[in-house]
Nucleic acid binder design. Structure first.
Lengths: 344, 344
DNA sequence: TAATAAATCGAAAACGTTTTCGAAACTACC
DNA sequence: GGTAGTTTCGAAAACGTTTTCGATTTATTA
């Protein structure tokens, strides 16, 4: 019941704490005999090193912090899983915080993690976040920082992203390739970089194909808890405003599925009347009817990559080397399904 | 850039570390003047207490551990959110681990959390888990432990659950009330208590209503990553085996939605030919067509309740009191939707 | 056997905080 | 001015580990 320490072992064996410590860590200057004795006793007493003391002494906790906008989210929960799985392999634990898309909370949580002295921080920014002092604080403390998905280009740290612009371009080009002439876009909130990039990719694809870009065809949705409803609402509004639409590129699968539901209720046939491309490849997208063409956004892989990068930086710091921030761009792909398959 | 300590402040003000510490914690035996000086300097130097040292000294880390079978899951991610939100209010951080339904991993993760000396542990058991030594280890160390959802009745700790049996009974009774005579059940894996309880509730409802219980009508699905596919497969199999079925009570919404998809593809009309009740009230259930009648399983509230309970136990331990394990049963409700609305 | 090399051990400092307890300084009162 | 009481401070121990460096013992060699 009592918690055993190095000292307990040392006293029982009539040796010093030093030797016990060294024996357990297999130092070369301890005899085989005492090593055996120590290890055996440690086992029978069920000795566990006091993590608090180890942390204090070694100045690291083998714990990292993760701040994400939302947890209940197909993409982000996959990222979490990726990070945790990779962290576990390297013996790291992960503290998770949810910013709820709030800048104030995000800032407070960064403070919290810094005062907890985690070994590094992984973050995906809140939609609201437009100032980056809190992030620069992390860097100023020379603590490893990796951003993913919702990033701030200005901040000097490593980043794990996809090429949102290219992916959006691909998605829009696909709509054009199958014959769409008037393509709407449901975009995400105004601030996040990826929402901007996806919009730009959409726009560029139109222009490259000599199709007019019409700002009136771009609808905004916050992509919060109400994504599905936003999709429905936007779709209904779109049908009222512009009934000549023949394709929509939508920022997120969940919004897209909402839109499809509303359109189908209005008697619009997909893909015959309107083709739809989503974004993220949520598992439900392959399952609904018609199945949804979408861009695969590899959440699990992003999580893994984010931790790997962070780990590299942690290792580099320990060796005193400085680490040049690196941006990793993960591959995406267009997955074509029934929502854009028109058999002409 | 250099990390400031109490000592730095003390030296700059020519006072002792003791006084600095006391000033910052508002001890009564420090003069107002020095308190002001200390606080001001602490602020300008951006002093942050070294969490490692505080932990070592106070023997607590204000951090708890959470072990869940899966992260990417509508119910569990809601629980995570509930736990984190509540923990944040009390100034606690949460380390999350995923057991992947594996007993071996779960056991290892408990070890890890214990050696990290978290202040308490919240756990929902893996499907595989049938031995509880690792849990008893936690209790033996007098560390607060709270289980939720997938619990082991034998283990002497606090538990947050719903009355699965009653909820399943309610669901089945509802099917009977609307005229179903031959009701199938897609149950979860064999070991988990809640999967057993839901099955028992289903069975009892049948018997109480003088309907025959037929084991052949009970299908098993593991409810892992393949839930949707399992639902489809089970539904198709069911139609082959017993085409006289007029109702199904299904362990999980996702499986139910899979089943509905398969049934609709087979030309079965829901609810006219077969009525369906799911379990968990996933947000998609209100959104698909037909919308799914289900049992509301309050994930967020369970998470909150779990942390609240853990927090009570942590407080009690600090006061040296012993805490009698408590089981909290949260309310559920039947949400009737289109999948069981037959207008006779 | 003496000198040297190798093997084995332990004292002590350090990590940064919290808290006890005694000492010093100051105030008030007769 | 002396006493008692109050206010303000700081030395020191403690939390449990890691690591340096010197000391001691044992083995090796000429």
């Amino acid at each position: 019941m009592k918690i055993v320490t190095l000292r307990d072992i040392a006293e029982q064996l009539n040796i010093s704490v030093t030797t016990v410590s060294k024996a357990l860590k297999d130092y070369p200057d301890v005899s085989k005999k005492t090593k055996m004795q120590v290890r055996e006793l440690a086992k029978t007493l069920n000795y566990r090193p006091n993590a608090f003391a180890v942390n204090l002494r070694t100045k690291e906790s083998k714990t990292i912090g993760l701040i994400i906008p939302v947890i209940v989210h197909h993409f982000f929960s996959n990222v979490i899983k990726g990070i945790i799985s990779q962290a576990e392999k390297k013996g790291y634990l992960v503290i998770i915080l949810q910013s709820d898309e709030s800048y104030t909370l995000e800032k407070k949580q960064v403070e919290l993690l810094l005062s907890q002295r985690v070994d590094g921080i992984i973050i995906s920014l809140a939609n609201e976040t437009a100032k980056y002092n809190h992030l620069n604080d992390i860097i100023a403390q020379d603590k490893p920082l990796v951003m993913f998905d919702k990033i701030a280009k200005i901040v000097k740290c490593s980043k794990i992203i996809i090429d949102d612009r290219k992916a959006a371009y691909l998605a829009t080009q696909h709509l054009i390739d199958i014959g769409c002439k008037r393509i709407a876009h449901f975009r995400g909130a105004l601030l996040p970089q990826n929402s901007i990039d996806r919009f730009l990719g959409y726009k560029k694809a139109l222009l490259d194909n000599n199709l007019p870009y019409d700002p009136a065809l771009v609808y905004i949705c916050e992509c919060g808890d109400m994504s599905f409803e936003e999709g429905k609402k936007n779709a209904i509004q779109l049908m009222e405003d512009h009934d000549d639409i023949d394709g929509i590129f939508i920022n997120t699968d969940l919004v897209a599925i909402g839109a499809m539901t509303a359109l189908q209720n209005l008697g619009v046939k997909i893909p015959e009347d309107i083709c739809i491309v989503g974004f993220s490849n949520w598992f439900m997208s392959s399952v609904i009817s018609p199945s949804l063409t979408t861009i695969n956004q590899p959440g699990f892989e992003m999580g893994k990559a984010a931790f790997k990068q962070l780990f590299r930086e942690i290792k580099a710091r320990k060796k005193g080397k400085h680490f040049e921030p690196k941006t990793v761009v993960l591959e995406t792909e267009l997955i074509t399904r029934a929502s854009t398959k028109i058999t002409v």
